[in-house]
Amino acid sequence: MLKVTDRATTVEQRLRAAGTAYVRATVVRAQPPTSALPGDSAVVLADGTIDGFVGGQCATGSVRVAALTALRDREPMLLRILPDSAVPFPDVPGAHLVVNPCLSGGAIEVFLEPQLPAPAVRVLGGSPIARSVRQIAPLVGLELADDTGDRTATAVVIATHGGDEATAIRTAVDDGAGYVGLVASERRGAAVLAETGLTGAELARVHSPAGLSIGARSAPEIALAIVGEIVRQLRTGGLDTPMAEPPPVHQAVDPVCGMAVVVGPDTPRLTAGDEEFFFCGPGCRDRYAEKLGS
């Protein structure tokens, strides 16, 4: 049987292979009494689904809400979850603090780290330059996109040295690639681009001749220049990794404890008349039911 941490690792491997964005949540500090221990971990998906263990239901609810914020902002976050009492717990400047009155005691800190898909590069052609790009790109953290179309490529390199290059450029632009590099001379590249029918904004995404001007001559050197240009665009040129639009996530406020709650199929809820209320856990739901019945 897989341990919780092993299961989380297996889930992460599957998500990375699919190019799915998620948040890795890891308990880095815990003060008894807590059910979570340092090292416990989980993954949080864009729809609020959690796979793994980072504490009881109330703590998990706080992690879920904060993780969605971290994923939206694409920034890591240290989440401090404290009970509604004066608990001596080391202060951490810059940490995101949540006071959860439903905690039975203790306090935990959870590091939330967004895991975004690596930029994918699709290389067209079987030339020496194409082969060299495929060899160099993974060395700088770029993934090679296959021809299945399952992932949108951040960059497309066209190194076919002939064929219908205009159509290849048009297809890459239409598919959403932010960088399209054509391996061709300046004169031939201009002739190819004239056949594409691209708008000015679309042409701004096409680089011809592809690659930084480093005086490259050999196929590996030209490939290095091309990969370098892609990296420069990623770091300073505004080139972004395409990500699937996250599903809409509904949040509510627990009417008992005031905690933010991500509404999902398993969220405790209670219907009273025409209103539906959502809760961080069964305890708050039951207390609210008693209040309505009194």
Rank of each mutant, 00 (worst) to 15 (best):
V4E: 15
V4F: 12
T5A: 13
D6N: 09
R7W: 15
A8G: 04
Q13T: 10
R14D: 05
A17S: 13
G19H: 04
G19Y: 04
T20P: 04
Y22A: 01
A25Q: 05
A25G: 09
T26S: 02
T26R: 04
A30F: 01
P33S: 07
T34D: 02
S41K: 15
V43P: 12
V43L: 12
V44T: 03
L45G: 02
G48D: 11
G52L: 05
A59V: 11
G61A: 07
V63C: 05
A70S: 01
R72N: 00
E75V: 00
L82C: 05
P83Q: 06
P83A: 09
A86K: 13
A86F: 08
V87P: 02
P88D: 15
D91N: 06
D91G: 00
N100W: 01
P101L: 03
L103Q: 12
A107I: 02
E109T: 03
F111H: 07
F111G: 00
F111A: 05
L112K: 01
P114A: 03
Q115C: 14
Q115I: 12
V121M: 10
V121H: 10
R122N: 09
R122T: 13
R122M: 14
S132F: 02
Q135H: 05
L144I: 13
L144Q: 07
G149K: 08
T160S: 14
T160N: 09
D174G: 00
G181E: 10
V183S: 12
V183C: 14
A184F: 07
A194K: 11
L198C: 12
V206Y: 09
H207E: 08
S208G: 08
S213P: 01
S213E: 06
I214C: 03
I214L: 12
A216S: 09
A219P: 07
I222T: 02
A223K: 09
A223F: 10
I226A: 05
V227A: 10
V231W: 04
R235Y: 01
M243P: 00
H250P: 07
H250C: 10
V256A: 14
V256F: 14
V262H: 11
G264D: 14
P265K: 14
R269W: 03
L270Y: 10
T271H: 07
T271N: 09
F278Q: 08
G281A: 15
R287T: 10
Y288I: 12
Y288N: 13
Y288H: 15
E290G: 15
G293I: 07
